[in-house]
Amino acid sequence: MNNNSTWEFGTRQVVYGAIGAALYGVFSWATNIFPLPAAGNVTFRPAVAVLIFFGAAYGPWVGLLAGFIGNTLGDMITGWGFYWNWSLGNGLMGMVAGLVMAAINDFKARPDIMKAVAYGLGGIAVGMLFASLTEMFVGGIDFNTALVGYFVPAFIGNAVVTIILLPILMIAFAGVAARRGR
């Protein structure tokens, strides 16, 4: 069932890549429509925790697909169009987080959860940094704006959400896995 070879790309990865993308799309859309309380221009998207979870549970390819396609779909149904650099950033976010998969064997064990969160934060850093910096060419902003105006708030928002929700997701998942096959 769960073969922990990190870079495998078969039916399993296709399915969970797609499911992750659909979920990420739906959740981001939901929070685009009903925004959560935001501090400054930090916005909180619980969807990110779900993306990181899919990475951690099913690996980097799933994380990449779920992040890229999911963010694209989310923007599309909201009506925002397509922002390739943010979609790619989200992809990287899930992909880096996915590198932890092989290292996790018990989803409710504290150390493993810690690992997942750590990789998640790494992923968020990489992904959002990429998106923010590319915004310099796409949006024509200067380095400071990219860093202070885009990266920092995006990182903080996603990090907070991940730190809070990812452990809850992983613990719940441990329960589900326990009754695999009814």
Binding site: M1, V15, P46, V161, I164, I168, L169, V176
Partner: peptide, 25 residues
């Protein structure tokens, strides 16, 4: 507070996500 609010989204996020993992199999 804000963090508390985010944590209280679990009742919505968890069921949908977990069901999707089962669907996947």
């Amino acid at each position: 507070g804000l963090f508390e609010k985010i944590r209280k989204l679990a009742p919505l996020v968890i069921p949908v996500t977990m069901q999707s993992t089962v669907t996947g199999e």
